[in-house]
Amino acid sequence: MTLRGLLERHGGWMESGPAEGPVVSSRVRLARNLRETTFPRWASKEVRNRVWNEVVSAFDQFEESEAFLRWRMDELDSLERELLFERHLISGELAERKEGSGVFVSEDECRAVMVNEEDHIRLQYLQPGLSLQEALTAAEALDDALEQNLSYAFSSKLGYLTACPSNLGTGMRASVMLHLPGLVLTEEVKPVINAVSKIGLAVRGLWGEGSEAAGHMFQISNQITLGKTESEIIEHLEQIVLEVIEHEKNARQRLMDDQEIKVHDHIGRAYGVLANAALMSSGEALDLLSAIRLGVDIGLLPDMKRRDIDQLFIRIHPAHLQKEANATLSAEERDIKRAQLIRCFLEGK
């Protein structure tokens, strides 16, 4: 399948599981490096190319390798790289890299292996809903399969050796994407984020480090990677995520008890604008879609499916709009196209 094929399936990894309540998706990412080999940032082109070839041959010996699509970053144009980034299949850092860097993506898009990003290998398992344990099992299975043909840099004291000491040990970053409009609307999100940050977890926006909480989306992940087992890290994260979900549910309940008419008004207005606007920036679209998503959750929009809204959260981004239009679009043209896409979706629901 080509990148174009990837685009035509709107769902991607979102089609692979349940999506309910405030949880959007769960992800487990493992960082691995090859023994006695310079890390990508410090390595020469020759070394990076050698690493790429080693990973390719490890993949080729792996039974399910045919189920993976592969792209080298230097064969993709900037729009295609951005498309993979918008789908959460590669990081912003990999999108900037060229020779020797690339990505392997499974057909269902749940599994992705970045080569020569900050570390030689960063593999991820991404799935809708709260399914951290499943994601860990799947990520480790892929890790085991690759390891059969690759020799990882490992120390019995420091665990998997990574380019940045913040990833040492398990090399694992587990995260859950949450949609928290209830806490945002009741202005309780800040204290919740502060409390979560104080117990060794990181809270970021939709696009990771530095991104604002666009569309009321928050990503909670572990920071500590050394001195705990993978399962202990996952259990701790899951326990905290469940508490945040409980807070979000309580906030939604309070909003419905105290200000039901205002909540209906908020969602109804968002629907009205999305159904009629001719120009729509991505920031505005994310905020309004957040209201629609809340409307679906509380049963106000019974004809709509949560998964379709979650897909729109990805399809309204610039590279997706331009790939769908098959043209390079200016900012204004993108706003027109985005408004059109959402109107079509609401009319044809």
Binding site: D143, E147, G159, P165, M172, L226, G227, E230
Partner: peptide, 19 residues
């Protein structure tokens, strides 16, 4: 720095099968 970051300096998680 490692100790300050992770409150530990000893890995107890997964070990590669090759070890």
């Amino acid at each position: 720095a490692v100790k300050a970051m992770h409150h530990s300096s000893q890995h107890i998680g997964k070990i590669p099968a090759r070890e």
